[in-house]
Design a protein around this nucleic acid. Sequence first.
DNA 1: TATGAATGAGCATTCATTCAT
DNA 2: AATGAATGAATGCTCATTCAT
Lengths: 214, 214, 214, 214
Amino acid sequence: MDQTGEEDGTGAGSAPRRTRIQQKNREAILEAALEVFSQHGFRGATVDQIAQAAGLSKPNLLYYFPSKEAIHIELLSTLLDTWLAPLRRLDPEGDPKAEILAYMHRKLEMSRTLPRESRLFANEMLQGAPRMKDMLEGDLKALAQDKAAVIARWSDEGKIAAVDPYHLIFAIWALTQHYADFEVQVRAILGPDHDPFSEADTFLTTLFNRLLAR
Amino acid sequence: MDQTGEEDGTGAGSAPRRTRIQQKNREAILEAALEVFSQHGFRGATVDQIAQAAGLSKPNLLYYFPSKEAIHIELLSTLLDTWLAPLRRLDPEGDPKAEILAYMHRKLEMSRTLPRESRLFANEMLQGAPRMKDMLEGDLKALAQDKAAVIARWSDEGKIAAVDPYHLIFAIWALTQHYADFEVQVRAILGPDHDPFSEADTFLTTLFNRLLAR
Amino acid sequence: MDQTGEEDGTGAGSAPRRTRIQQKNREAILEAALEVFSQHGFRGATVDQIAQAAGLSKPNLLYYFPSKEAIHIELLSTLLDTWLAPLRRLDPEGDPKAEILAYMHRKLEMSRTLPRESRLFANEMLQGAPRMKDMLEGDLKALAQDKAAVIARWSDEGKIAAVDPYHLIFAIWALTQHYADFEVQVRAILGPDHDPFSEADTFLTTLFNRLLAR
Amino acid sequence: MDQTGEEDGTGAGSAPRRTRIQQKNREAILEAALEVFSQHGFRGATVDQIAQAAGLSKPNLLYYFPSKEAIHIELLSTLLDTWLAPLRRLDPEGDPKAEILAYMHRKLEMSRTLPRESRLFANEMLQGAPRMKDMLEGDLKALAQDKAAVIARWSDEGKIAAVDPYHLIFAIWALTQHYADFEVQVRAILGPDHDPFSEADTFLTTLFNRLLAR
DNA sequence: TATGAATGAGCATTCATTCAT
DNA sequence: AATGAATGAATGCTCATTCAT
């Protein structure tokens, strides 16, 4: 997914040296696991499925990761960074409404291009975030507070309409992720002749423009 | 095997005769299953958990329902009706903006009072609706089309601002269900001193007012 | 092995009610496990072996005991009581030498009739008593101290020859258990025409008579 | 595969040529294997544990020995020689009681200095000597018969008290090995302030003196 | 209706050993 | 002489479901 190279959970230590084949297999496993976990959830996924999808034998897969859970955790750790990146880019010095709209667009784009990651995340949330709670109350909370303060300031300064900054963020998350997480429903209703994401882009642009207009 | 003749979604079959104890146990099972399925997903839930939560032995539970899957399907069937009820009540003859806002409020209220149902539904969607696709493309689609037409008319007649009626419905779904489905995340960010649903009520009222204002 | 009915490890609580079939199967499992564990050790034994020896399927065995380890622990708990019984009967008011010789005989008889128990115990000791250390430092130590004091008194009062009471007890254990634990070796050396236990009886009687004679 | 031509107990084969590093690694492996096998038994030990303890990779370890079992067998073969050495030194021409006591002391000293070897041997005996039976019925039996005959002669000649020579040997084995094999138990009972082996020395000296006194 | 007993299929993980380099 | 990579065969345990009563 990204070439930043995953840490081993310690977050600190020296980068683990990996041979080319290790790198390749680890990536294949994570890619396969993303596919399987996002579709079936943690418990619903089997190591066999993942191994097969990665083109490895089950014991060989467990040569690269110590356990099924370790793969899941690795995915979630990497995911959170990816997930928060668009929000991180919200620039306190930029034009308020443009910044918020741009953020929404980046987030919608992520739903479009990374729907499996979105579903993996949603799965974890639905189950009460058993493996992610710490991350939520750490990085995520800090970032949300930071950006909410920025938005609140914009709101106070009259640069955008008055609006609860936290719930504005929630709204962006909810509205964009919905198109990934509830894709079946959206497609069932719209039928095959619609392009949900392009319509969503238009609709959400309107929505946030009206919501934030002074 | 399934001599209880449970209504299977067709809505036709003869009314199943049930003693009071049967009724009570079926309800206990469905209540328990809702709890367990919504928390752990279908594969993550075990019949044992459900039986224990229902206060029954495992074989006795399977006397009432032929299989784990049958319980799940029964829950989903019932759920869809509950889920669509608020939308059904959207009155074509009512005041457009008031109707839409009232619908949103009913939906948010459902997220507040029935979060387990919301998560059960979300779980099913995330997995591609393997057990619900027909219902989506049947009742749900029909209802959505029907109500979208109403909203489109309102929009055309200038009674509300121009808006894509389908995506308006999606927005209501996404924004209200988010507070049930991503509750951990919302609470992790807001902390213990907030009342997410009451704040959401205010925020969403504002949001839809601005979106729909002529 | 004995009809006292095993506790479930809590040591306290009410006696677990068991149906006849439960009683029968539990006993079959423990008997089979004794056979297998004493021969192959804990790690060397497989649940499959035990199940087969007990005439049960693997999952059915695990219906009666939660894990392989639980069976092992149950065996060891029961065993310690059996194991200490002969020493418990050492009567402080009896004739000193006769009491000690009688104890030795009871212990030797146990090696003869319960060699598997002896080997199970020896196996556990060899590995450092990972599952029995507490029992050793509890019941066993207390009993040994108690009886060592009795023997020390006899020794002090000149009723038996001066002797270290603890090491006298160890000597009885070592000498009697040897015929069970090292049975292959004893038989390899003596050949098929000897009766090790009857010879041991004579030899050990002589040994302790000479050791303890005033 | 096994081109190193390890002496396989027959004692005949050509002397294996080994480089210094080979020699060093073989020794490291055997040392590590002794540690691990004596603690966990054959089945309980893993090749990984041994390799790690020896500071080698698993495949490299298997370059030196064709299999886990081969290491075990090698250990046992070497062990038997070590084990019997003290008895071999029993001098038919020496002073009978002094010889027997000296043998007992050598054996006790071995328990003190080589407890792992003692436990390895005990483990093998407990399991019925599956890998050692031939050795028992060969070298061991011959030596035991030889020395038993010596003791029997001494006994017949009145140089020591009348005693069954085989069971006298067993007694020495049992009493000395007990302090290595059942060390946990001994220490659990005596507590930390005792020196089991030094006390055993005193006790066993007394015991055999009284047993053998004319 | 209800439950104790039983099981086949499956699952995550371990492990001795082999392969390729 | 050494090791990273790979695997077949277990191994302990779980689970939905069935059987017998």
